[in-house]
């Protein structure tokens, strides 16, 4: 629970920056790309009866490859097509979603994993996976919080001053690669819904409070995500019929909306 709570906060801070760079829809595609890699990895591991170690590493490695390829393709589209980027991202998302379902058809054993990977179940996360979430979440949280001013400056320059992002060089490259790793790990262990909700629900609701200030906004995003994760998780433990991640997302929406009052 601690690992997913820290991860939720880190994702919320990352999501605020991705939304500021108008990358929400692109991130949905990247997350779906990671999902495709995870499903392919699980399918291969089960078909080839690989070891437990390979069972953990292969889906993550394939998630990185697939999400990296999705990121590169979407960047290329933005550069070449220039206009209406969200239309292309939406089309890409639909194609990746179809690919994910096709992969599940190739590996019938994936049936039982599909729903878990999309909607997540934090109650069944292993100790090792929880430690991985805690480690990656803490590292990302510290890094994004510590560099919040310079990351926000780049977001501002990109959107308002039209300063081009230097794709995979320097600080922009670190931001892109770090984001990919965190999203892949989160999709693999906590699921697609948890990842996307933690990325974008807190920041979308925090801007509706009407109060300005960069630090205040980022703190709100981090707290809402962490609090929702804790409360939602405890609710799902208390009421066994309540699935973990949807309970967390519903709590997040409630807490986030309550900020206005």
């Amino acid at each position: 629970m601690v690992g997913s709570t820290v991860l939720a906060s880190a994702l919320a801070l990352l999501g605020a920056q991705l939304a500021a760079r108008d990358r929400a829809m692109q991130t949905m595609c990247v997350g779906q790309g990671a999902m495709l890699g995870v499903l392919l990895g699980i399918g291969l591991v089960q078909s080839l009866a690989l070891s437990d170690y390979a069972g953990s590493v292969a889906p993550f490695a394939l998630a990185l490859v697939a999400s990296g390829a999705t990121y590169a393709m979407s960047e290329h589209q933005v550069a070449v097509l220039r206009a209406a980027r969200n239309t292309h991202f939406a089309a890409m998302f639909a194609a990746l979603l179809a690919c994910g379902y096709l992969v599940s058809a190739l590996f019938p054993a994936l049936d039982s994993h599909m729903a878990q990977k999309y909607f997540g179940d934090l109650a069944t996360v292993s100790k090792m996976e929880s430690l991985a979430l805690l480690f990656a979440g803490s590292a990302a949280l510290i890094l994004i919080a510590w560099r919040s001013n310079s990351v926000s400056r780049r977001s501002f320059e990109t959107m308002i001053l039209c300063s081009p992002e230097t794709t995979l060089r320097g600080a922009d490259g670190l931001f892109a690669i770090g984001s990919l790793i965190l999203i892949c790990l989160s999709v693999q262990i906590a699921g697609f819904l948890f990842t996307v909700a933690c990325l974008f629900v807190p920041t979308a609701l925090a801007v509706r409070t009407g109060r300005s200030g960069l630090r205040r906004h980022l703190v709100r995003c981090g707290i809402v995500a962490a609090l929702a994760c804790l409360v939602g998780f405890m609710l799902s433990l208390r009421f066994s019929q309540l699935p973990t991640v949807p309970a967390i997302v519903a709590t997040m929406v409630l807490i986030g909306s309550a900020q206005r009052f």
Binding site: S152, R153, M159, I160, C162, V207, S212, L214
Partner: peptide, 22 residues
């Protein structure tokens, strides 16, 4: 260099002081 102002809103709720702090 200051490019032509893209006079549009920004997702993060910055104050003018935040912008200067960049």
């Amino acid at each position: 260099f200051l490019t032509q102002l893209q006079n549009r809103e920004f997702h993060l709720p910055l104050t003018l002081r935040d912008v200067l702090s960049f």
